[in-house]
Design a protein around this nucleic acid. Structure first.
Lengths: 200, 200
DNA sequence: CCCTTTTCACCTAGGTGGTAAGAT
DNA sequence: ATCTTACCACCTAGGTGAAAAGGG
């Protein structure tokens, strides 16, 4: 009923334990979450949003080339954990028509971030997180009923788990980002030679 | 109940008869439409959209430094004339919270433009147009009732009239665009000298 | 010592009017 | 002759990881 787009890329990162940068002003995810949905009622209205929850109760650190646990997670961290898709609310037909992309979702470690009106997800560095996709029917008043589970669907893809960091720890992850994120093209090793070679 | 933002700029253009470029791939308006709204029901859902209609029944041409009529307008032109605000549908509270900007609305002369899924407004060159703002209550099924005028409000600002062109005709308009559109900064006369002067 | 923040060069992405060629 | 199209240099806007500086 829900398909995770760009699954092969997510799997590549997951194999090395995905890391996502968090900054004060907010940083996009890469890869970013994108889904295709089927099976909704075309005329019913839904809110679609991503929530990011702790994936385990540990604090993590990168030591000797590996991620190891290091005490308990701060579970009582405050801060927004939800990013409502900007096209919400909308009809089932709308959500099923094309991919639902969360490419502009931003992660931050700034607790006071959502005072400006850009919703960002507030995370804690060196904690492991699991994104979740929620699809919630909207009543005629436009109000969600989160207690009525029959009107809420939640989807989890373990391949999208990641550890929040302020700087990359595993160089394998850094290289995957450079290789696949268009905005990091300038850091690709062969970038200069691609052009110097063609000058002959 | 509805205020046109950036009114002084619109007035400057209007005094010289505003022109808007239309291209095959679509061109943004400058100035662009932006409104502030009050008086909606905070919990009711509304669609907000702009429609662009013929402002008069004439075909126009620019001759001897002035716009003059030149035959009748092609009123049976087909093509989409509506741009639904991307945040539609949404609550009255949402629409009243901040300015409603149509900065990404694009004008085109390509009748087959809306096959790709970017809604553009299709216009005919050398015709005069009047943008109109519509606010329509959405029923519980998410369907508009355009026949029930009590649920539709329409607002018209004569200062936003413009003639669609494929190339600017009046140099006064060109200069106003260059002076005020950030993307045209490279064409400002004083752009180079701003920097050469500071090199001393 | 480990983690975070700031700044930077370098890139993607795309919005300008000018210009010359094309179309009618 | 008049209007349209395609391409261009030049800009805005903002997303990258690297590196150095800052902080506890």
């Amino acid at each position: 009923q829900v398909m995770l787009n760009n699954y092969p890329l997510w799997a590549k990162f997951h194999k090395h334990q995905t890391e996502m940068i968090i900054t004060k002003q907010g940083r996009r995810m890469f890869p970013f979450l994108s889904f295709n949905i089927t099976g909704l009622n075309p005329t019913t209205h839904y809110n679609v949003f991503v929530e990011v929850v702790l994936a385990d109760p540990n604090h993590w650190r990168f030591q000797g080339g590996k991620w190891v646990t290091c005490g308990k997670a701060d579970n009582n961290m405050q801060g927004n954990k939800v990013y409502i898709h900007p096209e919400s609310p909308n009809t089932g037909a709308h959500w099923m028509r094309q991919e639902i992309s969360f490419g502009k979702l931003k992660l931050t470690n700034n607790k006071g971030a959502n005072n400006n009106n850009a919703q960002m997800i507030v995370l804690q560095s060196l904690h492991k997180y699991q994104p979740r996709l929620h699809i919630v029917e909207v009543t005629e008043d436009g109000v969600e009923d989160l207690n009525d589970s029959s009107k809420t669907q939640t989807f989890i893809f373990p391949e999208t788990q990641f550890i929040a960091v302020t700087a990359y720890q595993n160089t394998d992850i850094t290289q995957l980002k450079i290789d696949h994120n268009p905005f990091a093209k300038g850091f690709r090793d062969n970038y200069d030679s691609m052009y110097t070679a063609s000058e002959n």
